[in-house]
Design a protein around this nucleic acid. Structure first.
Lengths: 130, 130
DNA sequence: CTGAGAGGTGAAGCGACTGTGAACGAGTGG
DNA sequence: CCACTCGTTCACAGTCGCTTCACCTCTCAG
């Protein structure tokens, strides 16, 4: 079985050393994430999830795909882990940036990672985009 | 019994990764549909129906065939589900593109999927074709 | 015109899916 | 040994959309 460290290390090489995601600044190589200069305290899994925008730019990603990318193994039937981590990420991100939303649910499909500021309506991505 | 997720995943592999349908842009692999840069909010079933043009280019399709393609099982006697979803699709599409029509009824036969703009009469498909 | 059949429409029940809070155990550092 | 963090799992609650139903409209044959 693959350890967290190994799985994460394997992924890092495929990612850019740094990129921005809306108001967030992410540096995979350092395991660092900040929101408007406020450093975020993320766990390894949470950080792995936040790397998703670097892998797929704004498209809708299935849970299976997300899990495979972060955990390095196929998602098992009935496994709710992805949902739990999405929630934790949402909590931390909304604490740092209350007016922003980053992870959008697509029922029966998966999630779409896209920054959206509720005070700048009409600009960014819609909640549902099938 | 087959879950929605499984049925949907099975279909995706048979479709092109992206195609256009009149002013619509569709990406089956991402569960994404947009109308003139406006992202459409479709459910899994609605999206499955909109994939029809990728399977049959412009010909009239029987309800039985449509149901089998999207639901993955034969249509039962008296089942009106296809009609309900056609209506929902029409509503959403007409909201996004009021001057366009995409799904044309052929009484006693089925539906024909073809983009038609009412402001460009003479060019595109007639409402009834027999 | 009238009736029958086909399709359109609106609403509602129910099950599937997702969100949420909490508990447990493994791992780590003091 | 304890305190802490994090990953994982579970049960429950809330939401969403699939399906079904009843009723209406349209079309056409006679």
């Amino acid at each position: 079985m693959v350890t967290i460290r190994q799985a994460e290390a394997a992924k890092l090489s495929e990612l850019p050393s740094a990129f921005s995601f809306g108001p967030l600044e992410l540096r995979p190589s350092e395991g660092f994430a900040s929101a408007s200069a406020i450093a975020l305290q993320l766990s390894v899994r949470e950080f792995g999830l936040l790397m998703e925008p670097a892998r797929n730019d704004g498209r809708i990603v299935r849970r299976e795909e997300l899990y495979a990318a972060v955990w390095g193994e196929p998602l098992r039937q009935g496994d709710r882990t992805v949902g739990v981590y999405v929630r934790r990420l949402r909590v931390k991100l909304s604490q740092a940036l209350p007016t922003w939303s980053f992870i959008h649910t697509h029922v029966g499909f998966g999630y779409r990672f896209a920054p959206a500021n509720q005070f700048e309506a009409g600009d960014a991505a819609p909640k549902r985009a099938f």
